[in-house]
C-alpha cells in the first residue's frame, strides 16, 4: 500500500466514522438513560433516509436542507416509541424489552417494504456531488458534507448533555432514576427526551447518509450492528466513548474492507469480541 493510498483509506475511514459516531451517540444516549438497547435503531435510520429521499424525489429538497426536517421528524418518532411502547415495559423483564424493540424493528422494516418496495433507491443528483482534491488526496464531497454535519450534530448533543441544566437532569436520571426523581426531576420527561434526542441523532445521520448511500428497507441492519459495536467499544452510556469508538470503527471497517471486502464486517465483530473479552466496560464505560 503506497503512502498516498494509505492516507486516502484513513481519510475515508474517518469520514464515515463521524457518521457512525453520530448514530452511536443516539444509541448510547437511549441506553444510558433507559438501560434499554434500542434494537430498532437501524430502522429509525432507514426511516430518516427514506424521509430524505421522498423530500428529494417529491419536493426536490436536497438532503442538505431536509436534514433540518429529518432530525425533528425522528425526534417525534422517538417520543412516540417511548409513549406508545417503552413506557409500558420499563419494569418488565429484559427479554420483554428486547422483544419490544425487536418487534418494532421487524415492523418498521416490513412496513417500509410494503409501502415503498424492496428496491434500492438513491438521490441521483445531490447538491453536493463530485469530489475535491487536497494535496493529492481525494475527498468525496457528499462524504465530507456528511462528516461535517455529523460532527456539528454530535457537538450539539454533547453541549446539550454536558453544558445545560436539562443535560444535567438527563445525566442524573441515567445515574440513578429514583434519586433523580427524589431531587424533583421529572424522570418520565427525561425518558421521553432521551428517546427523542436519541432518534433525532439518527434522523440527522440518515439524511446525511442519503447523500451518498443506497436507500432500501434493509439498510438499517448493517449500521445498527456497527453502532452496537461502537457503543460497546466506547462504553455503554458514554457520549465521548461513542464518538471516539465511531472513529475507530470507521477506520477499522474501511481498512479491513480495503484488504478483504467480504470480511470487513467480520473484523468489526472481532473488535467487539476483543472488547468484551479484555475490556468489557469499553474505553470510557462507567462500570
Amino acid at each position: 500500500m503506497t503512502p498516498d493510498l494509505l492516507v486516502q483509506v484513513v481519510v475515508s475511514g474517518l469520514l464515515i466514522g463521524f457518521v457512525f459516531a453520530l448514530i452511536s451517540v443516539g444509541l448510547t444516549l437511549i441506553f444510558g438513560v433507559m438501560d434499554i438497547v434500542n434494537f430498532a435503531h437501524g430502522e429509525f435510520l432507514m426511516l430518516a433516509m427514506f424521509a430524505a429521499f421522498w423530500l428529494y424525489a417529491l419536493f426536490a429538497v436536497d438532503p442538505v436542507f431536509s436534514v433540518l426536517v429529518c432530525g425533528p421528524l425522528l425526534f417525534v418518532v422517538g417520543v412516540l416509541t417511548h409513549k406508545l411502547l417503552i413506557r409500558h415495559i420499563l419494569n418488565a423483564p429484559m427479554l420483554a424489552q428486547i422483544f419490544c424493540t425487536f418487534g418494532l424493528s421487524v415492523f418498521l422494516k416490513s412496513l417500509a417494504q410494503f409501502l415503498w418496495g424492496p428496491n434500492f433507491r438513491s438521490i441521483t443528483e445531490p447538491l453536493l456531488g463530485g469530489r475535491i482534491e487536497v494535496l493529492g488526496v481525494f475527498f468525496g464531497l457528499p462524504q465530507v458534507a456528511a462528516a461535517v454535519g455529523a460532527v456539528l450534530a454530535t457537538g450539539a448533543v454533547y453541549l446539550l448533555i454536558y453544558r445545560t441544566e436539562l443535560g444535567r437532569a438527563l445525566q442524573a436520571t441515567s445515574e440513578d432514576r429514583q434519586t433523580a426523581a427524589l431531587m424533583g426531576i421529572d424522570t418520565e420527561r427525561m425518558f421521553t427526551l432521551a428517546w427523542g434526542i436519541g432518534a433525532a441523532c439518527v434522523g440527522v445521520a440518515g439524511a446525511l447518509l442519503s447523500m451518498f448511500y443506497y436507500i432500501y428497507p434493509e439498510v438499517g441492519a448493517v449500521f445498527a450492528l456497527t453502532s452496537y459495536v461502537v457503543v460497546a467499544l466506547g462504553g455503554f452510556g458514554s457520549v465521548t466513548g461513542a464518538f471516539i469508538g465511531g472513529l475507530i470503527i470507521g477506520l477499522v471497517q474501511v481498512v479491513a474492507g480495503f484488504i478483504s471486502p467480504a470480511f470487513k464486517m467480520v473484523v468489526v465483530y472481532l473488535v467487539y469480541m476483543a472488547v468484551i473479552l479484555w475490556r468489557p466496560q469499553g474505553l470510557f464505560g462507567r462500570w
Binding site: L85, H88, I89, A92, P93, L95, A96, Q97, F99, C100, F102, G103, L104, S105, V106, F107, L108, K109, S110, L111, Q113, F114, G117, P118
Partner: peptide, 23 residues
C-alpha cells in the same frame, strides 16, 4: 404480494405481546 405485509403484522404482534404480556 411480495410486500411483506404479513411480516409487518407479525412485528406488530410481537410488540403487542411484549407490552401486554411480558411474562
Amino acid at each position: 404480494t411480495g410486500r411483506a405485509l404479513d411480516v409487518a403484522i407479525y412485528g406488530l404482534l410481537v410488540m403487542a405481546i411484549s407490552v401486554l404480556q411480558p411474562y
